[in-house]
Design a protein around this nucleic acid. Structure first.
Length: 751
DNA sequence: CTAGGGTTACAT
DNA sequence: ATGTAACCCTAG
C-alpha cells in the first residue's frame, strides 16, 4: 500500500529495546561459544530465537547476526546426528546451507568459503563414521566432498573406512569436535565482528562494578560478567551521568556514522518535552526526528535509528559532562514495559540551551527558562507485551510508582520516566527552579522479581514454548533445560502472562521431532497448545513416520483434537500465537476475523512500525490481545489463528515430519530470524531436501513472514519482490512467492 | 524480474 | 465436491 515510502519512523519502544536485547544476547552467545560454554550458548540462542519473534527493529545487521547464530547453533549440534534443523539434513549439512547464505550475503572469499565447507564436511563424515553411520557418511562423501586434489588423500581414507565399516581410526581420534567448533567460531568472528552491544556499553559507563572498567572490547570473560550484570539489572539500575552519555554517544555516533550532534539531540528532546507528553512523541525523537531535517535519519535503517537513540543519550552526557554529577540518567536496565503504548526509548531532555556547557548549576537554571528541566530521561520501556522477550525486563509499573515517589522527594531533577506515557511527564516538574537538585532517578529492579516468574529457558524446547500460550508455555520442556538455565537463566523472563507469551514462539522448528522425543514436550500439553503447533512438529512420533502428506492431515486432526481437549488451551493457542508463525495459519475464514483484526493491525502499524521493523505490530498481543484487541495479530495470519485448528494443521504437520531423531529441536535452525517458525515445516520439506516425491508441499506463511512482507512493501513498495526478499531473512521463499502472498493478503484484506 | 492466470495441495 | 492459499508457468 501506501507504504512505500514513508517509513518514517517510528519504532516502538519494544522494537528498540528488543533490538538492544537482541544485540546483547547475540554478543553473549558468541562469548559463550568462545568460552566453550555451549550450554550457555544454547540458552542465549534460545532467548534470541524467542526475541526475534517479537517486533524488533530489523536491519541488515540483524540478519547477519541471525545467520551467524544459525550457523553456530548448527555447528554446535553437528555431532548429534539425530538432530535436524532442516528435515533431511544433518545439522552440519544445514550448517553448510547457512554458510552458503552467509557467503552470499557477505562476500566471503571463495577460498575461505571452500575451506570452511570442507572442514564441515570432513567433520560430518567423521561424526558419521564415529557413530557407525557408514551409509550416511558415504552419501555425504559422494555428495559434498571436495574434489580438490589436496583432499584426495582424505577422501580415499574415508572411503576406505566406510568400506571397511571402521568407526575407529587414528584420524577420527585426532580431530576433536571441540576444536572444530572453535574453528568455525573463528571463521564467523573473522567474518563479522560483533560490536559491543549498547546495553553493555551503557552498563559499563554507568560504572557498574563488574563491568565498568572494562574496555569495550572486553574479553569474553569480562563480557560475561557484564552480561551477568545486565541480566540482573533489573535490580541494578544503572545511573549514568551526562558525561558518560556523551562519551558513549561519541563512540556510538562514530561507529554508526550518526551525524546528529549531541546538542541537536538535546534540543530535540526539549522540544518534544515541551510539546508534551504524549508518549508517542518520544519515539519520534529517537527515530526520526521529524524536526530535524537531517538526512541521516532519513536514510537510516532502523537499526541505525536505534543506535542513534542510544547515542542520543550519550550525547546528552557529553554535553553535560560537568554536570554530571548531579544529573544522572537512569537506565532501567531492563526494558520494562508495560504499557501498551509505546514510549520512547530514550529521551532526554535537556535544557539548557545555552548552558549546556556550563556547570551544572547553570544548567538548571536555564532550564527553567524554558520550563523544562534539565533532566534527562531515558526511558526505555518496553512494551508490554513482550517483555518476555526482552531481557532485562522488569516491569515497571509498580516500580514506577515507587520510583516516582522517591524521586520526587529527593530529586527533582531527573526523572525518568518511563513507562507509560504519562509518566514521563511526571517527574519532570521537580525541578524547575532548583537548579541543583539531585538527579537521579532510578527505577528499581524490583519488579523484576515478580515477573520473573517465568523463565524461558533455553533452548531446547523453544519451540514449544514459544507458541504456547503464555501461561502454559513454559511447561515441561523447560525442565530439561531449566537446569542449565538456572544458572544463567534468569535471563529471560517472560512475563508471562499477558501478552508475552506470544512472542515467544519459537521456532517452530520442526525438526525436533525426535524420537525419544516424547519426552520433551508433547504436544498435548494443553497449555501450550499454542505451541502445539510448534510442537507438533515436534512430535515426532506420529508424523514422523507417516509420509508428509499424510501426516499432515492426520496430524492436523490430531492436533486439533488435542487442542480442543485441552480445551481452553486451544483457544489460547490460537490466539496466542501470533508469534509463532508456524503455528499460525490462517484459514480463510479468518478473514472474517481479520477484518477486525486487520484494523488492529493498522493501528499497530501506525504506531509503531512504520518503519522498518518487521512486524511490529503483531506481536504484541498474543494472548491478551486476541481477546482484547485485535492488536495482536498483526497481520493476518495470526489472526487466523483464531481458528486454531485450522491454522495449525498445515504447518505443523508438515514440519513435523519425521522425527526420528531430532531430539531437540533444532530450534534454532532458523534462528535466523524468524524462520523458525515456519521454517520448520518448510525446511523439512522444501527447503532442504525436498522430499522427493511430492510435487510440492505447501508452506504456509507464518505471521512473521507476513510481517516482513508487509514491512518490505511498506519500505520498498509492492512490486519490488526481489528486493524485499533479500532484505529480510526469508528462507525458502522466492520473489514470486512473496508476490503471491501479497496478492493473497490483499485478497484477504489483510493489508 | 514481475504480473497474472492456471494448477495443486489441503481443508472442510 | 468445493473453496482457497500456496505454488507453477509463462509472457512481457
Amino acid at each position: 500500500m501506501s507504504a512505500s515510502a514513508s517509513k518514517v519512523s517510528s519504532l516502538s519502544d519494544e522494537q528498540i529495546i528488543n533490538r538492544w536485547g537482541f544485540d546483547y544476547y547475540v554478543f553473549k552467545a558468541l562469548s559463550a561459544f568462545r568460552d566453550a560454554d555451549y550450554t550457555a550458548f544454547t540458552h542465549f540462542t534460545s532467548i534470541i530465537e524467542n526475541l526475534v519473534v517479537r517486533p524488533v527493529d530489523g536491519h541488515s545487521d540483524m540478519i547477519v547476526k541471525l545467520r551467524c547464530m544459525q550457523f553456530l547453533s548448527r555447528i554446535n549440534n553437528g555431532d548429534k546426528l539425530d538432530l535436524t534443523f532442516e528435515e533431511p539434513k544433518t545439522p552440519l549439512e544445514s550448517a553448510v546451507s547457512v554458510l552458503e547464505s552467509i557467503c552470499r550475503d557477505m562476500s566471503v572469499p571463495p577460498r575461505e568459503q571452500e575451506r570452511v565447507k570442507q572442514a564441515i564436511i570432513e567433520t560430518l563424515i567423521m561424526v558419521c563414521l564415529r557413530s557407525g553411520e557408514f551409509t550416511r557418511a558415504e552419501e555425504v562423501l559422494l555428495r559434498h566432498f571436495s574434489d580438490a586434489e589436496d583432499s584426495a588423500g582424505k577422501k580415499k581414507l574415508f572411503e576406505s573406512l566406510i568400506r571397511r565399516r571402521r568407526s575407529s581410526h587414528s584420524v577420527l581420534q585426532l580431530s576433536s569436535y571441540a576444536d572444530f567448533k572453535q574453528d568455525m567460531l573463528d571463521f564467523i568472528e573473522r567474518l563479522y565482528r560483533v560490536p559491543e552491544p549498547f546495553l553493555l556499553q551503557m552498563l559499563k559507563r554507568s560504572g557498574h562494578p563488574g563491568v565498568s572498567s572494562e574496555p569495550v572490547t572486553s574479553s569474553s570473560q569480562d563480557r560475561q560478567k557484564t552480561s551477568a550484570a545486565a541480566e540482573h539489572h533489573g535490580s541494578v539500575c544503572a545511573c549514568l551521568s551526562l558525561h558518560s552519555l556523551r562519551q558513549v554517544y561519541g563512540v556510538l555516533s562514530e561507529r554508526y556514522g550518526v551525524s546528529v550532534s549531541f546538542t541537536q539531540l538535546q534540543q530535540e528532546l526539549e522540544e518534544e518535552q515541551e510539546q508534551e507528553e504524549s508518549p508517542e512523541l518520544h519515539l519520534a525523537l529517537s527515530e526520526t526526528p521529524r524536526e530535524q531535517p537531517e538526512p541521516p535519519y532519513a536514510g537510516m535503517t532502523i537499526s541505525r535509528l536505534v543506535q542513534e537513540d542510544d547515542s542520543q543519550l550519550s550525547t546528552a552526557e557529553e554535553e553535560e559532562t560537568q554536570i554530571s554529577s548531579p544529573h544522572r540518567i537512569v537506565i532501567p536496565s531492563g526494558p520494562d514495559s508495560d504499557d501498551p503504548e509505546v514510549r520512547t526509548p530514550v529521551r532526554r531532555s535537556d535544557t539548557h540551551n545555552h548552558s549546556s556547557e556550563c556547570s551544572p548549576a547553570q544548567i538548571c537554571t536555564p532550564a527553567r527558562h524554558t520550563q523544562k528541566h534539565n533532566r534527562i530521561i531515558l526511558s526505555s520501556d518496553v512494551e508490554p507485551e513482550d517483555h518476555a522477550t526482552s531481557p532485562p525486563s522488569s516491569r515497571r509499573s509498580s516500580r514506577h510508582k515507587q520510583q516516582q515517589k522517591s524521586d520526587h522527594s529527593e530529586s527533582k531533577c531527573v526523572m525518568v520516566e518511563d513507562d507509560g506515557g504519562s509518566s514521563a511527564q511526571v517527574c519532570s516538574p521537580a525541578r524547575p527552579s532548583s537548579s541543583s537538585s539531585s538527579p537521579a532517578v532510578r527505577r528499581s529492579a524490583r519488579d523484576t522479581q515478580r515477573q520473573s516468574r517465568i523463565v524461558l529457558s533455553s533452548d531446547v524446547e523453544p519451540e514449544d514454548h514459544a507458541t504456547s500460550p503464555p501461561s502454559s508455555r513454559r511447561s515441561s520442556r523447560h525442565k530439561q533445560q531449566q537446569k542449565s538455565v538456572h544458572s544463567e537463566s534468569k535471563c529471560v523472563m517472560v512475563e508471562d502472562d499477558g501478552g508475552s507469551s506470544a512472542q515467544v514462539c519459537s521456532p517452530a522448528r520442526p525438526s525436533s521431532s525426535s524420537s525419544s522425543p516424547a519426552v520433551r514436550r508433547s504436544a498435548r500439553d494443553t497449555q501450550r497448545q499454542s505451541r502445539i503447533v510448534l510442537s507438533s512438529d515436534v512430535e515426532p512420533e506420529d508424523h514422523a513416520t507417516s509420509p508428509p502428506s499424510s501426516r499432515r492431515s492426520s496430524r492436523h486432526k490430531q492436533q486439533q483434537k488435542s487442542d480442543h481437549s485441552a480445551g481452553e488451551s486451544a483457544l489460547v493457542s490460537s490466539p496466542a500465537h501470533p508469534s509463532s508463525p508456524a503455528s499460525v495459519r490462517r484459514s480463510d475464514r479468518d478473514t472474517q476475523n481479520q477484518s477486525s483484526e486487520s484494523e488492529c493491525v493498522m493501528e499497530v502499524e501506525d504506531g509503531g512500525s512504520c518503519v522498518q521493523h518487521s512486524t511490529p505490530a503483531r506481536p504484541s498481543a498474543t494472548d491478551t490481545q486476541r481477546h482484547n484487541r485485535s492488536v495482536t495479530v498483526s497481520s493476518e495470519s495470526e489472526d487466523h489463528k483464531s481458528s486454531p485448528a485450522t491454522q495449525t494443521p498445515r504447518r505443523r504437520s508438515s514440519p513435523s515430519s519425521g522425527g526420528a531423531h531430532k531430539r531437540r529441536r533444532a530450534r534454532w535452525q532458523d534462528v535466523s530470524g524468524t524462520h523458525e517458525n515456519w521454517s520448520d515445516e518448510e525446511s523439512l520439506f522444501s527447503a532442504t531436501s525436498g522430499r522427493s516425491s511430492k510435487k510440492y508441499s505447501r508452506k504456509m506463511w507464518t505471521v512473521q513472514e507476513s510481517e516482513w512482507l508487509k514491512e518490505g512493501v511498506r519500505r520498498f513498495g509492492a512490486g519490488h519482490w526481489e528486493k524485499i526478499r533479500s532484505s529480510f531473512p526469508f528462507t525458502g521463499r522466492t520473489a514470486v512467492n512473496l508476490k503471491d502472498r501479497w496478492r493473497t493478503m490483499l485478497k484477504l484484506r489483510l493489508v
